[in-house]
Amino acid sequence: MDYRQCATRTTLIVMLVTATVVVCQTRKEFRYTVGPHASVSVVNQYGPITVTPAPGNQVVVTAVLHSDKVEIDQSQSANRVELISHLLPGSTSDSGRVDYEVLVPPDASVSLHSSTGPLRAEKLHGDVTLEGATANVDVHDISNAHVHVKTLDGPVILSNISDGHVEITSISGNVTLDEVSGPLVQVSSNSGKILYTGDFGSGGEYSLMSHTGDIDANVASYASFDVIARSIKGRVENDFLLGPKHTPFAIKAGSAFAGTLNKAASSVKLSSFSGKIHLRKRQP
């Protein structure tokens, strides 16, 4: 009997708390008509931002405000749409949180800033710029576009990026690239790990660089690239049988290797100061 009473009370309290939280939230929707290659910028101190494509020429922003301690400043100037979460005095990371869902035309350029994130963008072919301190970043299915990502601690995951001009900098967040290719793919990490899975495309420049973070590249055996890998104080490993390649520095076994595979269409540079580098052959 006591157990049932306790369970009933707990359920009521949970329902009450949930109802209170729901009542405190405010949902707002903004619609903007834009032309081709519109530019959409969302700056949100606390909370997620998700951007997905939608047919037509409208930008539709749905924002859920978690309290009245935050408001949204929004504007449209010609083809440029800008939304900023405006924190009011006394706001915290909870009360200042806003959840954004943004629908944009597929060719729109998107710039997202959030300290806590997460930040997500998918299926676009306009430029994507994402910046967040501790924000998790997830970008996938982007083609023929610039993808620029900056985080401090937030992990970065990019997948299915083709013909991309990719630049990623993260201090301690892990960076995972899955099937990412393009004319330029550049990753700079400090202590975060870099994991690349793919084939290095056909004719791009790839630079994966870290301070103490390990670098793992899982590459298909049919891939075509030349590679220079070097760790000043860490170890390097290579699973491929590479052709010879000239290097500007003396190759020291265990700390550097260089070579070519197939027709060497792409240029790959794997550099770590004290992290471990491993060029793996991806299992079919």
Partner: peptide
């Protein structure tokens, strides 16, 4: 830059 960015807390 990120620390002094006006948009981030």
């Amino acid at each position: 830059q990120m620390a002094l960015d006006r948009s981030l807390p």
